[in-house]
Design a binder for these strands. Structure first.
Lengths: 198, 198
DNA sequence: CATCTCGTGACAGTCGACTGTCACAAACGG
DNA sequence: CCGTTTGTGACAGTCGACTGTCACGAGATG
């Protein structure tokens, strides 16, 4: 979640400012909406000047995505670790479920992030672009498990579909009671789709 | 594609301006990108003043979506028309394929539209919002065929997944040779997914 | 401790989306 | 044909994202 924290006073200070800006931004965007919230207000809430905001982040949008709750980061590794006898669908499913494990701790963070992103088309679009990249990652992982480097078209289909399921599960998770695990909703979606298709 | 064309001189003129603005916007956005293209340039190209642009469209974004190539508009009708003995998956599949029929004529239009939308996160986000609405439409249609008004969760799952397949098919269509029909690619995606899942 | 570096605030400025207003001319309605 | 409505251009103005610059002061460096 935080990178190598050089503990020199100056580094500590800038890290603190960065975190303060991200916190302020996500909270304000989630509560008041991204578009109606000027960067000045974010800076003010973080206790720095307006100018400083843009010394930390190149655009207003970018502050939202600088705290990767990093679902996809370890996809490839988790995917190849799946048992050989699973077909692609079940391997992807198992990987998602595995990655979702212990996600509960992040719930509040994710809630804020979702509300923020959902508040503006720009952010939705940015996230969509990331999902495109994720689809590629997944497709490559699928190909890799078959010992191929270039993913076939089917791999992309599966990747896209599984990401759609992931998004559904995520929303159900956030909308539902805290007692329900993301992992179980995720598994549920994959099971449901299989039932629908067969 | 065009609505009830009142042929009074004034109405003709405003309709012409509207079309000119949409054409100019889509072409410029597709070629130069949405963000780098100021509304002034669009207006200029359409042969009207900058101010007039905003008399026709409330925002820069909105001009992009005022020409609905209307895939989803007739979904509900086409869906209930499907034979009773098809399960949900095949009914959705058949509906998509049916709607895609004769889409080839719109190819150039769709190409421009895609390039325009893909050029900016804002537009991607807006389109995403529309897709959310479409998912709802589909889910409701699925429920309706079962004689229910409130869609179950599974209906939304299928709706999301089929829209993911639709988007994949659309992109393959635009990236591939003109000889290939959208309908066949669409069918292909549904078939592939079934093969992947079972 | 002296010097240098670098993060920051303050300020001024650009650029583009969007709005209000006014006056003209063409189209509408009687 | 005449008064009214209405679309349009011209112009001025707001607002917010983002940039350049400068001077100051607190940390890094020797």
């Amino acid at each position: 979640m935080a990178q190598t924290t050089a503990s020199t006073p100056r580094a500590v200070s800038t890290a603190r400012v960065r975190e303060a800006l991200i916190d302020a931004a996500l909270e304000l965007f989630a509560r008041d909406g991204f578009d109606p919230t000027p960067t000045d207000r974010v800076a003010e809430r973080a206790g720095v000047s307006s100018r400083t905001f843009f010394r930390y982040f190149p655009t207003k949008e970018s502050v939202v995505f600088h705290r990767d709750h990093g679902f996809m980061r370890s996809f490839a590794a988790a995917y190849v670790a799946q048992p050989r006898d699973l077909d692609d669908y079940d391997a992807v499913r198992a990987t998602f479920v595995a990655l979702a494990d212990g996600f509960g701790a992040l719930r509040t963070r994710v809630e804020t992030y979702r509300a923020a992103v959902d508040s503006s088309p720009v952010l939705i679009g940015r996230e969509q672009e990331q999902l495109g990249a994720h689809a590629h990652t997944i497709a490559v992982a699928i190909a890799a498990r078959h010992g191929v480097t270039a993913p076939r078209d089917e791999a992309y289909t599966l990747a896209s579909v599984s990401l759609a399921l992931y998004q559904r599960a995520l929303r159900r998770w956030l909308d539902g009671p805290r007692s329900v695990e993301l992992a179980s909703l995720l598994d549920d979606e994959f099971v449901r789709l299989r039932a629908l298709v067969t």
